[in-house]
């Protein structure tokens, strides 16, 4: 699974650290990092929570261009 750069960029736009985003979403920092590193495939529920906090759509954060 490829690294998720879109989340990192989106939280940078919001001036959020990984820790702050993890707390806002209600998950551990390790899980947030694993999602960004592409090591963990989150459920659709968790994807939606991340999108809601960052003000982005699922496509913006989780769609991979071929």
């Amino acid at each position: 699974m490829a690294r998720n750069i879109a989340i990192k960029v989106a939280r940078a736009e919001k001036d959020m650290t990984q820790k702050a985003l993890a707390e806002a979403v209600g998950i551990s920092r390790q899980t947030m990092n694993a999602i960004e590193q592409g090591e963990y495939n989150p459920t659709i529920k968790l994807c939606r929570s991340i999108c809601r906090v960052l003000g982005k759509s699922l496509d913006d954060l989780f769609w991979e261009d071929e």
């Binding site: 990192k8 939280r11 650290t17 990984q18 820790k19 390790q30 947030m32």
Partner: peptide, 23 residues
Amino acid sequence: RLDAEAEMESGDEEGEETGGNGK
């Protein structure tokens, strides 16, 4: 230790991203 590893992997220090870099 896991938090420190996550911080190193993500490459962001607390407050580093302030100022935001667009897409």
